[in-house]
Write a protein that binds this DNA or RNA. Sequence first.
DNA 1: TTGTATGCGTTATCAC
DNA 2: GTGATAACGCATACAA
Lengths: 337, 337
Amino acid sequence: MSNRRVTLGDVARVAAVSAATVSRSLRGDPQISEPTRLRVRQVADELGYVPNVAARGLVLQQTQTLGLMTPDVTDPIHGQVVAEFQRYAMARGFSVIFANGLRDADNERRVLRTFASHYVDGVALMGSVLRQDEVLALLAPSKATFMVSENLRLTSFRLELPRGCIRADDAAGMHAVAEHLVGLGHRSVAFVGTNACATQVIRRDALAAAAAERGLGDVAVHTVKVHEAPDFLAVARRLHDDRPDAAVCYDDKTALSLIDALRTVGMRVPDDVSVAGFDDTPMASIANPRLTTVAQPTAEMARRTAEMLIASISGQPLADSQLLPVALQVRESTRAR
Amino acid sequence: MSNRRVTLGDVARVAAVSAATVSRSLRGDPQISEPTRLRVRQVADELGYVPNVAARGLVLQQTQTLGLMTPDVTDPIHGQVVAEFQRYAMARGFSVIFANGLRDADNERRVLRTFASHYVDGVALMGSVLRQDEVLALLAPSKATFMVSENLRLTSFRLELPRGCIRADDAAGMHAVAEHLVGLGHRSVAFVGTNACATQVIRRDALAAAAAERGLGDVAVHTVKVHEAPDFLAVARRLHDDRPDAAVCYDDKTALSLIDALRTVGMRVPDDVSVAGFDDTPMASIANPRLTTVAQPTAEMARRTAEMLIASISGQPLADSQLLPVALQVRESTRAR
DNA sequence: TTGTATGCGTTATCAC
DNA sequence: GTGATAACGCATACAA
């Protein structure tokens, strides 16, 4: 067994044709006669020839590779994003270089620099703590199309041109939650969030607005610095004192953690307090109590992001920004007062 | 703003030196005089030069890129693997091309072919449904080192040489569970699993062996085909009839789903039946009831995998296979009979 | 200390 | 139909 890579040239030599012919044959160029095409394919298979996409990318000036940065794949919601994005990309012939952003500016910069140095055709940022112009500067050299989700300034760029963007209708979701709670006879509501990402702010403000609109009064905001037990216990204790009718959480993970903390503090959900989440993670429907939450079309968003990104790379005009619909899932964690 | 990529040559022209000098300056070659080095760096920065790793890989014959395939990132346990693997890889200067295997042979083949065509320096397979020799054949052309986790034949290869491998001590975990249940006075135990992956088989058999050893009698095996509610309800009903003292599940996800199904069937955990999981997912400790499970050093495994892979790529001798210790976490879902 | 020439694996242009 | 040949962007052996 040879210890060197088998290249186009090797196939050419064995098949007794030129490298150009091999290249054409393998890519199904119609100008190649059937016999040679067959023979070349045969030889290529026998030799175990695998085209080197890097070399190809070099001449074609496109890598058929996408960069994907997510805050943290550990989170199921981001896992779904990565899964669907990758699936769609692969179906379209694109590989994806993945990296966690970790909501750390320096780390995110490193990631973007990596994407740039790979000269990926496009990059999708599902959340970033970087300022838009910095992202732009970091990615500009690679001429990559890119899309941003979650950021406050929701835009997509290609060679510095603003474009469309995909987002879930967080505001509508929070309004639905508020309406649901009012229908349940709730009078006071608290918001519990974790980190201070853009989505966090959007949801919190949307809830506050919706609450005000429906006469729920001010929304007490409780923040847990890191997603850890002690923090949630502290919040649970405060809720124990404040006794709001409901605690609306930034996401399901937060809600589930809070419910656990409430349990150790002796508050029962939904008996003593209603709790609502956001995202409709798989866990939401099998938690105890099953969680009332807002279903987000996560996979759909990831798919559309990849779709728009690839379309844009192909030079097609980018569709307008899209605000995908969400749906309130009423389950056991909220109950009438 | 120019519309072309800025290359080594561009920097060279502007800095009035040769491309070779630029190359050397940027990589800190000691043979370059300080003045030129500085000037070159300066120009490179001004021009926004970003080295093209693909081109570099072409000449260096190594891409500084790793391929990572996981069954499904959507699963938190795999999400942790991806996160830690990527983190470690990036810290070592490696990019990672990620793809889901989805436990689908055709899909996994496509993934491996993709890795091969990128001529990644190494690939890590955290679970695969492919036969070892097929993986080998698919990857051979790229000469990539690779490691497999989870498979029954647990080995790592480089140019067809068997090497070390990282795994958690699943058997020890199941033995600990069995012992715990016996200590609780349990007499009968069932196993609930989902798909038929290798780990599944390992854990099931280990439980059966441990049970036999400790006089727990035969282990009834219940299988849910897909991870969906109806399947779990069916299993829950059977458990309702069989009334085993405990149901030991393949993993936490399965355990949590089962507990939910048991609840709708009217069986209480741990009052009517004990339930144990495996993995110690974040959800395990905040579920209601909190789940007794086996903690696996997931991140540690991912890190070591990346570590060994990279070491092996660097030509270093590979460490022996490692069986990482697990730890039983006793919580609320198991109770004495 | 720096420049020149060559090659990495592939595709595209232009001959034949 | 097929074959040379010149890029693509970079790094190194060898000169200077």
